[in-house]
Write a protein that binds this DNA or RNA. Structure first.
Length: 804
DNA sequence: CGTTTCCGGGG
DNA sequence: GTGTACGGAAACG
């Protein structure tokens, strides 16, 4: 096979199927859990591996004398063997021993002797001197095995659990209910019998017993690592319960270093102890759907928020009967209506399971490639977390010395092109974009890290792009909803993640092993060049450019053009680009409001309004403003200016007559400071003032409340509406404040769409009639051209020597 | 008005 | 095993 070597770099080489979990100890023991093909039965293999390290020199091991010997003389008990890798990389000695702790101790003792002071940890020697992977990764890199070969996502035994607690702080609050979904999809709840320590401890023990009975390969939930596991660990420690959740080894959760979580230098000390921890257990993988959601939204940028309910709703996973209870009320409701809380908690695990399946396939597919545990790949950044381990494996497989991290030379990193050509409303809009622009440029112009002498990065990108096309084709050929379709779509998503982060890896300063700012800048320079060529060539063909960003362009076409004409100009321009740079027709829209760079609204020919950019989709926006904006935009993009006026007048009037419920002006906010912290800070903030004004002197950090500005500039707290209870609405909001907000923050987003006199007319105060007769019947939205594409006198696009 | 601080998730 | 990035909104000066 032509690419056998490169396929080994990408997939590893050991064909062992069905691995669902790997646990290794520093002493050289590895436990491998596999599901057998066919039966799906679980087996555990106990194997030995030789722990290894990469060193820049052997100077810290010379004190071993005869106990240090070359690898080719073969391993022997209590000996350290060494092997020199070939080529110029700094990390050039692989040293191995039967026991990794003995190996590390030998290096540390040698370093201490040489440096004249004790050295406690290999990391103290620096990344330029030593590379030491966690034991599982040492095992996977050396063996060429990976997770999940010949296994489908649905072959995994997955369970979900979700804690219901009396509050957010495990120091004071209790777990009173746990919803469970087993591997066959059956849900139920476990509950504490009473509110004593003993009752809670008994609940935790029953949870542990259920997990062991279900015996899942994977445990999933939304914010599992940020909430459920740390909360559970804390309560178990307080109550003296042992969490024997693993499949081997000593019982209890183990901590691993956090990948995501606490931001240092911000927030109070100890305040995010919950977020810092990542727990792990032998034989099972903890998967947090919040990680999958973030990874997904990073590329799509279309989610309204990252909370479970919002995401499930958005992705169509919520059932119409989905039970909702505001977090702060769950425990209270449990007292009066426990059945409601049970339904709510079961709905939570059901949605978490659905989310995990819908978005979790990418991490699953990554685990078939990269030599890391599945749970680490699920929360890893793609550059250091996925690409780097693959490159390390490739270099070791080839016996090649590995470069160490090197600081940049101070060259700044230059970015992508962003052009706003016109603002306002345009009709007949087309979006064209280049599929995977940066990877295509890297491939087309062979731009890779200078120190990657094997060319492994470009080889990986080449193979991934080719194999991704094949996976997409297989997905298309498979019946919709089939495991075959799912697997190949997930594979394609995983490959896209890796391919698209190759560029990020290059540009990551001194953070990645093969970082190369010059190469990264060459990629962006080519990208800007390509985008400019696309814009110029489109403009020459008679379209009006609207916005171009990195790899795509929106433009509007003359009246009378049909879809065939639109596609024709795109393919004409596509013909002018280098072979691996593929410009594609990405969509067509009836109209677009171009507001600011990366902020626009699109009206499809049929279908719902699409809002992009934070100006149009702020999660904290008050509902009345959001509703107004959607109504106004729909009218605006249909050319109906009187309709925009109507929406505005209605909203202002409803505010002033207080026919809008207080709920629609209230903001849903989270209290992140304790009363003590707030009172100690000088800064006054509306939500806390509202708490204090309502007489509440105690609250927990993390509590969510609805606040609004009441008459007289007062901060006020809106009591959470009980189901079916609308009588308690105070309706004392400051109508003029919200009328001003409607004009200044919401209507303002339409400012580019109208001539100034029309804008003034449309958003004139309805109670202060203007002197001029309304003339909106003839008003039209406007488009303002800000700049013309560079046509003359510019370099004629890409330099000729780059074309075949 | 420009600058600084805070936010994202879970009960 | 270390990092989020980023852009908006509200409060401050």
């Amino acid at each position: 096979m032509a690419h056998a070597r490169e396929d080994e770099w990408l997939w590893g080489w050991d064909p062992t199927p069905g691995i669902v979990s790997v646990w290794a100890e520093p002493d050289g023991r590895a436990f491998v859990w596999r599901r057998l093909p066919g039966s799906g039965a679980l087996v555990r293999e106990d194997v030995r591996f030789r722990p290894w390290l990469l060193l820049a020199s052997l100077e810290n091991l010379t004190h071993l004398g005869a106990r240090l010997r070359p690898e080719h003389e073969g391993p022997a008990p209590h000996r350290v063997t060494w092997q020199e890798l070939e080529g110029p990389g700094a990390l050039r000695y692989v040293v191995r021993a039967d026991d990794g702790r003995m190996l590390a101790t030998a290096v540390l003792q040698g370093a201490a002797r040489r440096l004249g002071h004790p050295v406690g940890n290999l990391r103290e020697l620096g990344a330029h001197a030593v590379l030491s992977l966690p034991p599982e990764e040492q095992y996977l890199v050396a063996s060429g095995r990976t997770y999940f070969r010949d296994l489908g996502f649905d072959d995994l035994r997955r369970m979900q659990f979700d804690l219901e607690t009396t509050g957010l702080e495990p120091q004071h609050d209790r777990i009173f209910l746990v919803a469970i979904r087993d591997a066959d999809g059956k849900t139920d709840t476990l509950e504490a019998h009473g509110d004593s320590d003993a009752a809670e401890a008994d609940l935790l023990q029953r949870l542990v017993a259920r997990v062991r009975a279900i015996d899942p390969d994977v445990i999933e939930n939304h914010n599992l690592h940020g909430f459920d596991l740390p909360f559970l660990a804390h309560r178990a420690r307080l109550l003296g319960v042992t969490l024997a959740l693993g499949r081997a080894g000593t019982p209890g959760l183990r901590q691993r270093p956090a990948a995501r979580g606490a931001a240092p230098g911000r927030g109070g000390p100890g305040h995010d102890a919950m977020r810092r921890a990542r727990y792990t257990v032998p034989g099972r993988e903890f998967i947090d759907t919040l990680d999958a959601v973030r990874r997904h939204d990073f590329s799509t940028r279309e989610l309204p928020g990252h909370g479970l309910k919002a995401v499930a709703q958005h992705l169509g996973l919520s059932s119409p009967e989905r039970e909702h209870i505001p977090g702060a009320q769950v425990y209270e409701v449990f007292g009066s209506n426990p059945e409601r809380v049970r339904r709510y908690a079961r709905d939570d695990v059901t949605e978490a399971a659905g989310l995990a399946r819908m978005l979790g396939g990418a991490a699953f597919a990554l685990a078939r490639m990269a030599p890391r545990r599945y749970e680490r790949l699920a929360d890893a950044g793609p550059a250091t977390g996925v690409i780097d381990p693959m490159l390390v494996r490739a270099y070791l497989r080839e016996g090649a010395a590995l470069p160490a991290h090197e600081p940049g030379d101070g060259t700044p990193h230059s970015g992508a092109a962003l052009h706003l050509f016109a603002t306002g409303v345009a009709r007949h809009v087309v979006k064209a974009d280049v599929a995977s622009l940066y990877p295509s440029l890297m491939r087309e112009y062979r731009i890779g890290p200078k120190r990657d002498r094997l060319g492994a990065m470009l080889a990986l990108v080449d193979r991934l792009v080719e194999q991704r096309l094949a996976a997409k084709a297989r997905a298309r050929a498979a019946p919709s909803g089939s495991p075959e379709r799912y697997t190949n779509e997930a594979l394609s998503a995983a490959m896209k993640i890796v391919v698209n982060s190759a560029y990020g890896y290059l540009g990551a300063g001194g953070l990645t092993r093969f970082a190369d700012v010059h190469a990264a800048n060459e990629v962006t320079r080519r990208g800007r060049e390509v985008l400019r060529l696309i814009c110029n060539e489109l403009a020459r063909r008679g379209v009006t450019l609207l916005e171009a960003d990195t790899d795509g362009v929106y433009f509007s076409v003359p009246d009378g053009w049909g879809e065939a004409d639109e596609r024709r100009v795109v393919s004409e321009v596509a013909e002018l680009l280098p072979p691996k740079v593929r410009l594609e027709f990405d969509g067509r829209y009836a109209a677009m409001l171009s507001h600011e760079p990366k902020n626009y609204a699109l009206q499809p020919y049929d279908g719902a309004l699409i809002l992009r950019g934070v100006a149009f989709r702020s999660s904290r926006a008050e509902p009345f403003g959001e509703d107004f904006l959607r109504r106004a935009l729909r009218c605006l993009l249909a050319g109906d200016i009187p309709g925009v006026r109507g929406a505005y007048v209605e909203t202002v009037t409803a505010l002033r007559r207080r026919t809008l419920p207080t709920l629609s002006v209230a903001a849903h906010v989270r209290l992140t400071k304790t009363p003590e912290q707030y009172l100690a800070a000088r800064r006054r903030e509306l939500p806390y003032e509202a708490m204090l004004a309502s007489g509440q002197k105690h609250w927990a950090s993390g509590e969510q409340v609805r606040v609004y500005r009441a008459v007289g500039g007062r901060a006020a707290l809106l009591p959470e509406p009980e189901a079916g209870d609308n009588g308690g609405d105070p309706r004392d909001y400051d109508a003029e404040f919200y009328a001003r907000q409607l004009r200044e923050t919401f209507a303002a987003r339409l400012v580019r769409a109208l001539a100034p006199e029309d804008f003034a007319e449309v958003f004139a105060d309805p109670e202060q009639p203007s002197l001029f007769a309304p003339s909106l019947a003839n008003a039209r939205p406007i488009l303002t051209v800000l700049r013309e594409p560079e046509t003359e006198g510019e370099p004629p696009g890409l330099s000729a020597d780059n074309f075949p």
